[in-house]
Design a protein around this nucleic acid. Structure first.
Lengths: 219, 219
DNA sequence: GTTGACGAAATTGTTAGCAATATCGTCAGC
DNA sequence: GCTGACGATATTGCTAACAATTTCGTCAAC
């Protein structure tokens, strides 16, 4: 079940392996602190040890894997303190993106965001966590896309990968949607009104609240 | 001259190679768009091709090297537009660090920063570019250190490496120190006065001005 | 019972060689 | 003279095997 078959029988390339392992870590199939023995991974994924090695090197630069000289690799465990730091950095970067998005957004994109706002309101109203969480991700992704900031986007994505465990934990919290919905609506409103400062501030407040929730949950 | 000897005769490990190559790129010994042929690098640095390969993989994740499937690696060339994006991201992150630094700075550290301010004023007064540039780097590094934000620090450092070419260009600009000195002094003053908002805003304005200078120079 | 030395097993680090792919020069055909 | 096919060369992608290091179990000494 956890084993990944070799598909059509071809061996995996180094780059394919990086993607597979990254997803496995982000999806939680490989848990924090779990040892990543090169030979085992090579068997499991049907790749050569050399490629596994390269993949682990790259993931260690990305911050998902921790390597110690002569002692192998393991899935990096992100502490609560670190998750808070990451959230603060994300706050700064997503606020930047929100500002840029408010400057550049087109009418069609505005329409799309307002539609998303309606979807979120309805999802909360009928208590559909699944749908709300999906909208949440789409909202953040859309704002980053509209901002057209490639550097910020890449950085945010990397950091998201590192802190995904805490995001997940948060999405399952009981009262959470009722707290975050008005924040999300405020962000959408400011961006659609072409209010850069308002959008940045609304985004900053939202992620500040996320940080508070992480702090409150893990204490 | 450009060739690096093997030192005491030992072959270089993969990790040593990463550091050597990173420095070579940042110091400009390997110029943008320059092809990085694995076999050549292996000869030049006295390492095996496998290790060169791993090093190039890691540097490509760091954004210093560009790799194309089956067509090798080259030093990544950062465009002006990208340098501006990078500077904006740095502005957001260093503003965050300045805010945190203002919250946490100790009296001893304050003293150190004020000493640095005096050094910078004197360097500008006697037209010592070399010394001013060194102080500039020390200032940014110190604020990041005081802020104790590891995630932000790592991100900033990575981005700095990518845009180093533009920073260098800027430091050589004639009137530049007279423009940036008051900004630097304002940052130091706000941080030492424990004024988080003021420090963040001063840092943001400073890097905004850096962005303007990059824009003006490359047009 | 605890401590420390020794050695086997497990695991990582490195290298050399083979296979696959792209690049470039050459030359025939138009 | 220009175009496109062909083959040689250069270069990357990958794998298997070897070397070095760490880890862990065993056992003797205290």
């Amino acid at each position: 079940m956890t084993t990944v078959d070799e598909g059509v029988g071809g061996a995996l390339s180094a780059q394919e392996l990086v993607d597979l392992l990254r997803n496995a870590i982000i999806r939680g199939e490989l848990v924090p602190k779990q040892r990543l023995v090169e030979a085992d991974l090579a068997d499991e994924y049907g790749a050569s040890r050399g490629n596994v090695r390269v993949a682990l090197s790259e993931l260690s630069v990305e911050g998902l894997v921790e390597r110690v000289q002569n002692r192998g690799a393991r899935v990096r465990a992100v502490s609560v303190e670190e998750a808070l730091e990451i959230t603060e950095v994300r706050a700064a970067l997503e606020a930047l993106c929100a500002r840029k998005a408010a400057e550049r957004i087109s009418d069609a994109e505005s329409e799309e965001l307002r539609g998303l706002a309606k979807e979120m309101e309805e999802a909360v109203e009928r208590g559909d966590r699944e749908s709300y969480s999906a909208c949440n991700q789409r909202l953040h992704a859309k704002i980053i896309a509209v901002s057209a900031q490639k550097t910020a986007a890449a950085t945010i994505q990397r950091l998201r990968g590192q802190a995904v465990r805490f995001q997940f934990q948060l999405a399952r919290q009981p009262g959470r949607p009722h707290v975050s919905l008005p924040q999300h609506l405020a962000i959408i409103d400011a961006v659609c009104r072409h209010d850069p400062n308002g959008a940045a501030e609304a985004m900053r407040l939202h992620l500040e609240s996320v940080a508070d929730a992480i702090r409150a949950t893990n204490s």
